[in-house]
Design a protein around this nucleic acid. Structure first.
Lengths: 154, 154
DNA sequence: CCTTGACCTGGAGTGCGCTCCAGCTTTTAG
DNA sequence: CTAAAAGCTGGAGCGCACTCCAGGTCAAGG
C-alpha cells in the first residue's frame, strides 16, 4: 500500500528513535531522505535497507566516524565499490579478532565461575573428610593474603 | 626483588594509564592500594591480579557501574561469593549472546563483501558473454533505484 | 643542597553517541 | 473548523569512561 514509512514507523521498525534517525541524517549517515509536501520524511525501502546495514555495522562496533566515511563513499557511486569492499573487509577482520578475544576471555571467566563453585562447595560443607584435601589449594591461597580483610583474587 | 610496582609500572603492565588507575581507585573499583611512606601507591601482586580480572570484565563489555557492584561485594568478603558467582554467570550469559550475535552479523557482512566482489568482477569485465547472465541480478536491482544518483543497497 | 622528574589531590574538560527541548508548522481525527 | 498529535529545525544537555590540569609534595641523582 503505502510505499514509504513515517519517521515514527521507521523508528519502530529499526529500533532507533525518531531523534536518532534525524541525527543520523544530520551527520550524513543517511543522505537526504525524501520528504512529503509538508516537509516530513518519507522513508522508502531503500532507506530502510541502508539503515539495516548501518545497524549491522554499528552492532559490530564500527564507530560513527567510519560509518560516515562509508556513507560518503556510497554517495560517490559505484566507482567507490572497491574502497567500500576493502573497508568492510578490514572491519570484518577486526570483528573476527574481537570475537576470538571475547571467546578467550569468556573461557577465563567461565573458569572463574567454576572456581567460585568449588569455593562455595567447600565452604558450605566444610567438614567433608576425603574430598577436602583436593580443595585445600584455594584455602591455602586465601591464607597468603597480605592485608587483612582482603581476599586474594576472588 | 621489589614486591610492588609503582603506578607507572602498574600502568605499563596493565595497559591502563596512571590516571585511569587512580580513577579506578577513586570510584571504588580497586580499594585502598597500599602506599609508601611518601604516600605513593604500591601495587602488590594481589592488586595486579584484581586489575587483570577487572580488565577481563571490561573487555567483555561490563559497564563500570556493574564492576563497582562486583568490587563492593568482593570487599564484603567471602559471604558474598555466591552473589558474585551469580553476577558473573549472568554477565557470561550476556557475553555469549553477544558473541553469537556478532557471529551472525559478521556472516551477513561477509556475504555483503562477496556481493561487492561479484559486482566488481562484472563491472571490470562488463563484456563477459556467458557469465554475464548470472550477474544481471545486481544490475537489475540497480535499475530500480528511485532517486537518481543513489545506489540501492550497496 | 638543589634540581628534576615522578606522584599526589581535587576538580575541570573531552569525545562519543545519542537525547531532550523550545518554538514553530503540518497533518489528522472528530 | 478546531484541537490534538506528529513533525520540523537548531541547539543545548547528558551519561559514560576516561583524560587533563593546576598547584603542591616527595624522591633520587649529581
Amino acid at each position: 500500500m503505502k510505499p514509504y514509512l513515517s519517521i515514527q514507523e521507521a523508528a519502530a521498525s529499526t529500533g532507533l528513535s525518531p531523534d536518532t534517525l534525524r541525527y543520523y541524517e544530520r551527520i550524513g549517515l543517511i543522505g537526504a531522505v525524501p520528504r512529503g509536501p509538508g516537509g516530513q520524511r518519507r522513508y522508502v525501502p531503500d532507506d530502510m535497507a541502508w539503515l539495516a546495514f548501518l545497524l549491522r555495522l554499528r552492532s559490530t562496533g564500527m564507530p560513527v566516524r567510519q560509518m560516515q566515511e562509508f556513507a560518503e563513499l556510497r554517495r560517490q557511486g559505484e566507482a567507490t565499490a572497491g574502497a567500500r569492499r576493502e573497508m568492510l573487509e578490514r572491519h570484518l577482520e577486526g570483528v573476527r579478532r574481537n570475537i576470538r578475544q571475547l571467546e578467550e576471555t569468556a573461557a577465563v571467566l567461565a573458569c572463574k565461575v567454576e572456581h567460585y563453585r568449588q569455593l562455595e562447595a567447600s565452604s558450605i560443607q566444610p567438614k567433608a573428610k576425603g574430598a577436602s584435601h583436593g580443595k585445600v589449594r584455594s584455602d591455602a591461597k586465601r591464607a597468603l593474603r597480605q592485608r587483612p580483610g582482603k581476599a586474594a583474587g576472588d
